[in-house]
């Protein structure tokens, strides 16, 4: 790499555009503008803000802001990235690459979490919160003790297990010289098929046929929705009781959901569907959202998001609807569940 860097520097000097004429376009960037956008952090700590956060605080913030995708213990939910574990698996089949087992620089974790996370609500964490989350991720990888506090002062002291696990692109030496087989005739004696894709059968089905099936089913679904819409008139009791205090508490709990679900004016489907008017609505009834097969089947069965169903779903989503796409582990506290349902009632 050093050779390459020298070339880079030489090229920089050679191609130095000092002589090239400037056009006088653009305007000077103001210091506060640069401060607002220049957030990246380098391995040597350049860019790290002053601040600190500890493991225990990190655990709480992680549970609130990260665990719905990454799991309470950073073990990852569904296909979302696992952040912990996988030590010493890099030379195994299917290595588990986590912050602990793979990432060479801690700065990358801080930089990424501060600039790009949480998913759906990026750049909403304070610098101290990011320190705390990074501390918790280190803890969940058994790299620090539970009384550990991470700060800009001790940041570079943390040793990442795979810090020395990387080398610069060496294809020029290891591959380019040997990938030159130009044989044109009688290049091998025999050819056998050793593996077939059809055996695995993981290729998506033609969407055209899927669509036509959906179109055929659409009228039936519409009927279900109409029936459901009519139902609250005959059984309005469930929606009638409304507790504003509970709803206010529920709004706070709903922060866990906001990365994926929107409510209110101008709400759109995101990773999860809009939740306006969800209490009392048919399950899986948002025509613009692609539900799991389970929720679609519940829709076909005429099931409704009444309070009992919502409570069961929120407690353990995957027990209520096996195969749901909602990668949320569930709410542990009964009050949280009640309050959040109350809050959702207020979002019509």
């Amino acid at each position: 790499m050093s050779k390459f860097l020298n070339t880079v520097i030489a090229a920089t000097l050679l191609a130095s555009p000092v002589a090239a004429e400037k056009l006088g376009l653009g305007r000077a960037a103001l210091p506060e503008e640069i401060a607002a956008w220049d957030l990246d952090i380098s391995p040597d700590g350049t860019g790290l803000p002053v601040g600190s956060g500890n493991v225990l605080d990190g655990e709480e913030i992680f549970a609130e802001a990260c665990a719905m995708c990454h799991g309470d213990f950073a073990e990852g939910v569904d296909n979302w990235p696992k952040l912990a574990g996988g030590m010493d698996t890099l030379n195994h089949d299917d290595p588990l690459k986590t912050v602990g087992s793979y990432w060479p620089y801690l700065s990358t974790a801080y930089d990424y979490i501060r600039r790009s996370m949480p998913f759906g609500n990026a750049q909403s964490l304070t610098d101290d919160e990011v320190y705390a989350i990074v501390a918790y991720i280190l803890y969940s990888n058994d790299l620090v003790d539970e009384d550990f506090e991470l700060s800009n002062e001790n940041f570079l002291d943390v040793e990442m297990p795979n810090a020395d696990g990387f080398f610069f692109d060496n294809r020029a030496e290891t591959e380019y010289a040997v990938f030159n087989d130009t044989c044109m005739t009688n290049c091998k004696d025999s050819v056998e098929i050793t593996m077939r894709a059809a055996v695995l059968d993981v290729t998506p089905q033609e969407e055209g046929t899927e669509l036509s099936e959906q179109t055929q089913q659409a009228p039936a679904q519409d009927t279900t929705v109409v029936e459901v819409a009519a139902e609250p008139e005959t059984a309005p009791v469930a929606v009638a009781a409304f507790d504003a205090d509970m709803a206010a508490s529920g709004e706070k709990v709903f922060k866990k959901c906001k990365a994926c679900h929107q409510v209110g004016d101008g709400a759109k489907n995101k990773t999860g569907p809009i939740l306006n008017g969800i209490v009392g609505m048919a399950i899986g009834a948002n025509a613009d959202f692609k539900y799991s097969k389970t929720l679609s089947a519940m829709n076909a069965d005429g099931m409704i998001w009444d309070e009992a169903n919502l409570a069961a779903f929120l407690e353990k989503p995957k027990d209520f609807a096996k195969g749901t796409k909602m990668s949320f582990a569930g709410l542990k506290k009964e009050d949280d569940i009640k309050n959040i349902i109350e809050y959702l009632k207020s979002q019509q």
Binding site: M1, D40, I41, S42, P43, D44, T46, L90, N91, P95, K97, V99, Y102, W103, P104, Y105, S107, T108, D111, Y112, S116, G165, F166, F167, F168, D169, N170, R171
Partner: peptide, 24 residues
């Protein structure tokens, strides 16, 4: 220096059989 962002360290790097990884 390179920032060594998430996409250039944890992703878009190539792990060899011995567990070491090519970057850049």
């Amino acid at each position: 220096q390179p920032v060594e962002s998430r996409e250039e360290t944890s992703k878009y790097t190539d792990t060899m059989a011995d567990g070491s990884s090519r970057k850049h």
